[in-house]
Nucleic acid binder design. Structure first.
Length: 445
RNA sequence: CGGGGCGUGGCGCAGCCUGGUAGCGCGCUGGUUUUGGGUACCAGAGGCCGCGAGUUCGAAUCUCGCCGCCCCGACCA
């Protein structure tokens, strides 16, 4: 994309309402614009990141054998009356009446809807196991939305639901989700730690939250430093292999890691002091096993091998996709702006033409631009009539991990400069070598 | 929901106390200049001062009501 043909309304000054880094930077980098309290429009740059995260979530879910579908944002109240949650959910649920005075609601989650779909289509144990998920906008009428997309009222979430015949099968689904989530966050360049947590309105006693460590997180967390050393890497995982999956879960859940709700000071004190960490975290996902909590009241039953009708064992699992954009920035920024991990960056590299209008610089910039695209990469070429300082400042702000600088000084010796946003380190390379380097960096991402 | 604060060109703010033709910086437009970390200068454009009522000869400014937004707290798959 050429910047003069894009829509990137960056702000030089920080809007007064933004308190935390991710909110400030998302507004300044032209990623979002507030539409109402806790409700945001996603401008092109922000939308690109959001879609990239969606894509990673889709890939990892499907790799784990989970099946995508799409349920609506508006739901009929009747289903929620059936589960008993129409009254239980309280003021956080946005209730709407249609023209016929029918009670509707903007879905805060989808257990009821998915259970309804399931029970109308599945009647036999032979159709199990089944895990369905979607990525859809949710609405929760928070008392106090804040921190930009970190605590919005409208937010994009991946929510998935597993249906199994036995508790054992459902626990395997639980484990499968934990492993696929760990891999998902890793691909995004995040360290998200599974922590024992409370059930909340969804319910269930078997539940973990995934927390991204960041000083601005809303949850206090206590953990054994050993857990942050764990890495899944690109090892092959057979999600059907119960032993392999549960071994990974065992490894990740062995070190002490709890949010304050479930904190056990005694167990914490037993950890060697140098490994004890108290910090803050941002909740970016949660997984639950809740058995027959919904299947019983909503009569989601299958016939088992013995010909008996039994309620299915269920679990649900969520990833806060829009919140992740904020969490990524909280975990990856400096005083000049955002620093995107390669896995989620909206553009792979920025091209800064230091002397727009100079024939040699223009030609080399365009040639790099074409070369990167030919290599399957997605560059952002800053072709504005701006001074070098302004272009550098914009690139630093929007946080592309790699920058190619084209200027008369370097071109005199046939070189362009490749700079890492994270380390600030630069090297002078021929244009061909620079393209090759970037291709290598992004290989496999 | 309790407490506090703020609504003035796109953004950041001043003016309000003590009513009298709406200002500053950034950004924007045209031009000159400059060109390896937000250049300097010249000339411009852009505002029902959140909305409504009231007081007054006169309201951004005073009074009342409403709406919106932010912060702290409680709450939070």
């Amino acid at each position: 994309m050429r910047l003069t043909q894009y829509f990137l309304p960056v702000l030089r000054e920080t809007p007064a309402e933004a308190q935390i880094a991710s909110h400030r930077l998302m507004l300044r980098a032209g990623m979002i614009r507030q539409a109402a309290a806790g409700i945001y429009s996603w401008l092109p740059l922000g939308y690109k990141v959001l879609r990239r995260l969606e894509q990673i979530v889709h890939e990892e879910q499907q790799r784990a054998g989970h099946i995508p579908l799409l349920m609506p944002t508006l739901q009929a109240a009747d289903l929620w009356r059936e589960s008993g949650r129409y009254d239980d959910y309280g003021a956080e649920m946005l209730r709407i009446k249609d023209r016929h005075e029918r009670d509707m609601l903007y879905g805060p989650t989808n257990e009821e809807l998915i259970t309804d779909i399931f029970r109308s289509a599945v009647t036999s144990y032979k159709d199990l196991p089944l895990t369905l998920y979607h990525i859809q906008w949710k609405f929760r009428d928070e008392m106090r939305p804040r921190f930009g997309v970190m605590r919005g009222r409208e937010f994009l979430m991946k929510d998935g639901y597993n249906f199994d015949l036995t508790v054992e099968d459902a626990l395997h689904a639980y484990n499968r989700h934990m492993v696929s989530y760990i891999r998902t966050y890793e691909r995004m360049g995040l360290k998200a730690i599974p922590m024992r947590a409370d059930g909340g309105p969804i319910g269930g006693d078997h539940t973990h939250e995934f927390l991204v460590l960041a000083p601005t997180g809303e949850s206090a967390v206590f953990y054994d430093r050993a857990v942050t050393d764990l890495t899944l890497g690109d090892r092959g995982i057979d999600y059907a292999d119960r032993g392999q999956v549960s071994d990974i879960v065992a490894t990740w859940t062995a070190p002490y890691a709890r949010t304050d709700e479930r904190h056990d000071p005694e167990a914490f004190a037993a950890i060697p002091e140098e490994r004890r960490v108290e910090g803050r975290g941002i909740e970016v996902g949660q997984i639950f096993f809740f058995g027959t909590k919904y299947s019983e009241p909503m009569r989601a039953v299958v016939v088992n091998e013995q010909g008996e009708r039994v309620p299915v064992q269920m679990g649900s699992h969520g990833i806060g996709v829009s919140r992740l954009v904020g969490a990524l920035i909280e975990a990856n920024h400096d005083d000049r702006g955002i620093i995107w991990p390669e896995g989620v960056t909206p553009f792979h590299a920025g091209i800064v033409n230091l002397k727009q209008g100079d024939h040699a610089c223009d030609a080399e910039s365009l040639s790099l631009y074409a070369g990167l695209r030919a290599a399957g990469l997605d560059p952002l070429y800053d072709d504005r009539e701006e001074r070098a300082g302004a272009k550098f400042a914009t690139m630093d702000l929007i946080g592309l991990p790699w920058r190619l600088t084209v200027g008369p000084r370097g071109l005199a010796s046939g070189k362009v400069e490749l700079t890492s946003r994270r380390t600030g380190e630069s090297e002078d390379l021929s244009p061909e070598a620079a393209i090759a380097r970037l291709r290598e960096i992004y290989a496999g991402i």
